[in-house]
């Protein structure tokens, strides 16, 4: 009984302390940044508008692997793989429905080529919802975005125009299958 009462008193005390602590916050300075009068500093890794970047050679980085699309929890990425005459994969179309996107960044996590990146641009409102459907042409930037050096095709074993078999990083020249030498 005594214990119970003590416990009840303690609970009441704790509620009062809470009230007091919260009350003291009224005298603290508000953290609010008065956007848009005041533009906030956006961190480079902020997850805002999505772009598609290019590799250091200026070629489209996306290889149309579909991993971002499958990672996307709201299924708002759709693309179609195609390839150029030398076998380089790239997306024929690449579409994001930003009216569905929740800016979770999973697509960027999933991307094996650093092609798809979220940027600090968060001002994405549109008056017409249809305008929130973006195609590759709208998203493809001319630079490398946040990751400057990565060039997927320089590492992959697949040959593309300008890079034959055995010319990727850490590769031996192609084997002559008619030779019996070790």
């Amino acid at each position: 009984m005594i214990n119970f009462l003590c416990k009840q008193l303690y609970i009441i005390w704790s509620q009062l302390v809470t009230l007091w602590l919260v009350f003291t916050h009224i005298f603290k300075k508000a953290d609010t940044v008065e956007y848009p009068d005041q533009m906030p500093y956006m961190f480079p890794r902020w997850r805002g508008r999505i772009i598609l970047s290019r590799d250091p050679d200026g070629e489209e980085r996306c290889v149309a692997c579909n991993l971002c699309a499958v990672a996307c929890p709201v299924d708002c990425i759709a693309l179609q793989k195609t390839e150029d005459e030398n076998g380089r994969w790239y997306p024929e179309f690449f579409r994001i429905n930003f009216s569905r996107c929740i800016m979770c960044g999973f697509c960027e996590e999933a991307c094996p080529t650093h092609a798809i990146q979220l940027t600090p641009d968060f001002e994405m409102a549109e008056y017409v919802r249809q305008d929130m459907v973006w195609e590759k042409e709208d998203m493809l930037i001319s630079g490398t975005g946040k990751y400057h050096d990565y060039n997927f095709y320089k590492i992959a074993g697949k040959a593309i125009g300008g890079k034959g078999k055995g010319e990727a990083r850490n590769e031996l020249p192609p084997i002559d299958r008619r030779s019996l030498l070790p």
Partner: peptide, 16 residues
């Protein structure tokens, strides 16, 4: 169950 692009594959025609 991993089917992707459900909310965007037809969005270029109509976002609804």
């Amino acid at each position: 169950h991993r089917y992707s692009g459900r909310t965007v594959m037809r969005a270029h025609l109509n976002v609804h």
